[in-house]
């Protein structure tokens, strides 16, 4: 494990409320600021929250992957991470709770030229939206899913999530969580994702690299990013501030690329296995759709690249 990551507070999108959105002569100091809606700052995330850190990696990954930013769309659900769509200066959709994946499905199928990123939280993607994500992975639709996992429902004040480790305190498990948690990489692996990785907000460089990887890979790609929620999860469970979480991640993380996903489940104080677990090839949904229809219908099949109406 490298330890070159800086303090997340340094990396997060900082408040720049005075910068006008359309000002041409403003030269951003931070190279990632061009990816942000600076006219929407300050953001709503708490001090020490890891979501901003992941956005920083996302912006750097966009830069590094040299994507045409006019063709990148970000889709979020509801929750703290759901607000990412509102802060990135891209076509962005803040949809309904749990439904970022099916919205993204329609977006991608109607315009396959778009790079469609689904950026949302663990509760949004795996509790209320759990059915959608396993089906999108099964289809192997070309979506880039970034799941920020802070083990808790932040926006509503710290309730149980499908990822909350057994023993952890939340406002709806005041005597400790007794429900088994989802092992997200194992679930995505089983459902058919072609790329599955886990990093933490401590691993900003690895996370950036993983994001570049999925921008370049076709098919359903999934990155789980563990992030601290100092206001709720850390505090409730006496895990300290954001910085303490970074130290904790540094101490507990073990990089094991290619680890069997069945072995990467998380516990409240056990090791955090990080790395790229799955990187494989499966036929992508639209390719399957097109080849099936072309084979069955021959010349009668009308393949349309972009379903744009007049």
């Amino acid at each position: 494990m490298t330890s070159q990551a800086r303090d997340p507070a340094e990396l997060g999108p900082r408040p720049e409320a005075e910068v006008p959105a359309e000002s041409c002569d403003y030269q951003p100091e931070n190279p990632v600021e061009q990816f942000l809606r600076t006219d929407r700052m300050p953001h709503i995330w708490c001090p020490g929250c890891g979501i901003g850190t992941t956005v920083n990696s996302f912006a750097r990954a966009l830069l590094e992957a040299k994507l045409d930013l006019d063709r990148v769309a970000v889709v979020s659900g509801i929750g703290c991470t759901g607000r990412v769509a509102g802060y990135v200066r891209l076509d962005s959709f803040h949809t309904t709770h749990g439904r970022a994946i099916p919205f993204a499905t329609g977006l991608k199928l109607a315009n396959p030229n778009l790079t469609v990123v689904v950026y949302s939280g663990d509760g949004d993607l795996f509790a209320i939206g759990g059915n959608h994500i396993i089906h999108a992975a099964r289809r192997n639709l070309d979506l880039k899913v970034i799941c920020v996992n802070n083990f808790v429902y932040g926006m509503t004040g710290g309730q149980l999530a499908p990822t909350t480790p057994v023993g952890a305190l939340t406002t709806t498990t005041p005597y400790g969580c007794y429900e088994p948690a989802f092992n997200l990489p194992a679930l995505m692996d089983a459902a058919g994702a072609v790329y599955v990785a886990r990093w933490t907000s401590f691993h900003v460089r690895q996370l950036t690299r993983a994001m570049v990887d999925i921008f370049r890979k076709k098919g359903f790609c999934f990155i789980e990013v563990l992030t601290p929620c100092p206001s709720l999860f850390q505090r409730k469970n006496r895990m300290g501030e954001g910085l303490d979480a970074m130290k904790y991640y540094k101490e507990k993380s073990k990089v094991r690329h290619g680890a069997p996903t069945s072995e990467v489940g998380l516990t409240i104080d056990g090791d955090i296995i990080v790395g790229k677990f799955v990187d494989r090839e499966r036929p992508e949904f639209l390719d399957l759709l097109r080849s099936q229809l072309a084979a069955q219908l021959g010349d009668r099949y009308v393949e349309v690249e972009h379903l744009v109406c007049s």
């Binding site: 959709f93 949809t95 993204a104 499905t105 329609g106 977006l107 109607a110 959608h132 379903l307």
Partner: peptide, 18 residues
């Protein structure tokens, strides 16, 4: 996979141009 999905997939398609 369900009607929730169907009813927002169409919104995604509309914002892509369909």
């Amino acid at each position: 996979e369900d009607e929730l999905a169907a009813s927002i997939a169409i919104a995604g398609a509309v914002w892509a141009g369909a």
